[in-house]
Design a protein around this nucleic acid. Structure first.
Lengths: 182, 182
DNA sequence: GCTTCCATGTAAAGTGTTACATGATTGC
DNA sequence: GCAATCATGTAACACTTTACATGGAAGC
């Protein structure tokens, strides 16, 4: 499970609640990893049992108490073990390509509609990524003062931008080919 | 579930056993979708119950009987409904980028080792895809006589090649940056 | 002799999404 | 008045992987 390791990664920056961790996901890694609160909460509980985290309760009035999790020595070790560990190739699942693969059984205009919709979607996503690259990243680095970390955060953004651009290029070529030959 | 639709797609070409369907996956779409036999068999059974498929048993001696599945009218409709249906953006999960994101807590050489290993892996995968693009695809089109389908099969291959190349480029840039700045 | 191919599955565990449940405070 | 923010979770469902189980035939 990589959710565990992502949680360890963020908690290695500082102690946080499940709710705050969710915000970390949404603000920084959402374009290559996501998690629901309903998945985060039980996972944190489990990690506490495993000794990777400790939890302290901050009592609040008129709100549920905050459960702040902190990484332990064992958690830190586990994070670094995972970071160093070689990864085996991830299982790929691109449902859109399954559609294209069987696109021959649709009418030309129907498959073109799919391709054009996908193109529009990814153009929008690219714009969002590029905005984030310009503004958000610099902001995060200033907020945290994490300069070395910022280099790696930037790399993941560039990966996203590069692969989106490649995907968009392919979509444009695919549309042209289908218009011509199909 | 897209496995169902992928199975419908293949069975729309011709009737097959679960074992043969697995081979279809391995030979054609494995670089963007995969399935285990232990997942295929129960799914086929379920699809039969739902009326998407029919099954006939071919009796064999000294081997388990072959259960050949055929697509029904309802199955064909469901396939086309899905193919036409707009897709919502897929959940993205790139564990490798999670590692890079938290790469700041590794030593320079440790993160470089990860990046280099990933580069080598994807260079190999690219070579396989390019081989398949040159030889395998043409073969499949000749074997089946499916010309129009071949166009779409080719598009998915090009998508794979294009995105692998983008990934490799990014890895090379990332390695250079980490070597310089980290 | 050992591996691969053919051909079927079941069971358990792991991972993830969606729906349900609560409830005060702040901003539009 | 309505939505969003803060803050916690449970339960059910959906999907996928891994391990287990069988066993003959063909090729090296």
């Amino acid at each position: 499970m990589s959710l565990k390791h992502a949680l360890l990664g963020f908690l290695n920056y500082k102690g946080m609640t499940g709710y705050e961790l969710k915000q970390c996901f949404d603000r920084s890694v959402h374009y290559f990893w996501n998690a629901n609160l309903s998945q985060i909460y039980p996972t944190l509980g489990q990690m506490e049992k495993e000794g990777l985290l400790t939890m302290e309760v901050e009592y609040q009035e008129s709100r549920p108490n905050r459960k702040v999790y902190h990484i332990t020595g064992a958690g830190c070790e586990e994070l670094h073990r995972w970071l160093r560990e070689p990864m085996d190739p991830p299982p790929v699942r691109q449902a859109f390509l399954v559609k294209v693969f069987f696109g021959g059984s649709l009418e030309k205009e129907e498959i073109l509609a799919q391709l054009r919709q996908e193109l529009e979607l990814h153009c929008n996503l690219l714009a969002i990524l590029e905005d984030r690259a310009r503004e958000g990243l610099q902001q995060s680095i200033e907020d945290t003062g994490f300069k070395r970390e910022g280099l790696f955060w930037g790399l993941t953004l560039e990966a996203g931008i590069k692969s989106k651009k490649a995907w968009i290029e392919w979509l444009e070529e695919a549309i042209a080919k289908v218009e011509l030959y199909s």
